[in-house]
């Protein structure tokens, strides 16, 4: 399902073979869950690939950890469009459904995962079956092992996007710490030396991120 914020000007979108999502969205962003690891993201990518719109639209995608986070980004008006399941779209009052992907554009959603077939020569990796068991329950898992020792060396070679990610992490962390230092000293001084109305509230607010770790 293609969704938009409730008060968006976009009302309905016809999704078909000639649908150019990239042109349609312009400068905005499309929120969906990670297209490599989260099912809804995978379906979104598969559907757009089938419609021939994926390549152009890829840089417009803002990927989130799960479908709820994508829904929140659209509901708060940060992302112009989002791709989520219809069931999720219906429970969030801040969004409206503006388009439906044709059923033949994506593989049927299924909770049964397919067992990977053993094959070799796939990027130098071959899959070997391994059986692990606990308390009498046997479970089959598949391990990927490198074909040649050279592949282990390749593990440490980083692609340009990986370098960008590392540099961005460092930049973000250094700036965040530098900006937070004077603020932190100030607040710490207030908390240590002064007594004021609502001091415990401020104290609690500051320590809130420590207990609300995830997401």
């Amino acid at each position: 399902m293609l969704i938009a914020p409730k008060d968006s000007k976009i009302d309905s979108v016809a999704i078909g073979p000639s649908f150019d999502l990239a042109k349609f969205i312009g400068d905005g962003k499309i929120a969906t869950a990670d297209v490599k690891s989260v099912p809804v993201g995978k379906y979104a990518k598969a559907a757009l690939e089938k419609l021939g719109a994926w390549e152009a639209a890829e840089p417009k995608f803002a990927m989130t950890e799960n479908v709820r986070a994508a829904l929140a980004l659209v509901a708060r008006g940060e992302a112009a469009l989002g791709i989520v399941y219809s069931t999720d779209a219906k429970v969030e009052p801040g969004v409206k459904i503006v388009g439906t992907f044709p059923t033949d554009s994506h593989p049927p959603s299924s909770i049964r995962s397919r067992r990977p077939q053993p094959r070799s020569g796939d990027g130098g990796l071959s899959r070997v079956p391994a059986v692990v068991g606990r308390q009498g329950h046997l479970r089959e898992i598949w391990l990927q092992v490198p074909d040649q020792p050279d592949d282990l060396k390749n593990m440490f070679e980083l692609s340009p996007t990986e370098w960008t990610a590392i540099l961005l992490s460092l930049r973000v962390a250094v700036i965040a710490t530098l900006v937070a230092t004077p603020l932190g000293i100030g607040v710490a001084w207030l908390l240590a030396r002064r007594n004021f109305w609502g001091k415990s509230v401020v104290d609690a607010l500051i320590h809130l991120p420590l207990v609300l770790r995830r997401s």
Partner: peptide, 13 residues
């Protein structure tokens, strides 16, 4: 959650 994950823009390590 806040800025999501856009390769090259907000994708941290």
């Amino acid at each position: 959650t806040f800025v999501s994950n856009i390769p090259g823009e907000t994708q941290t390590i």
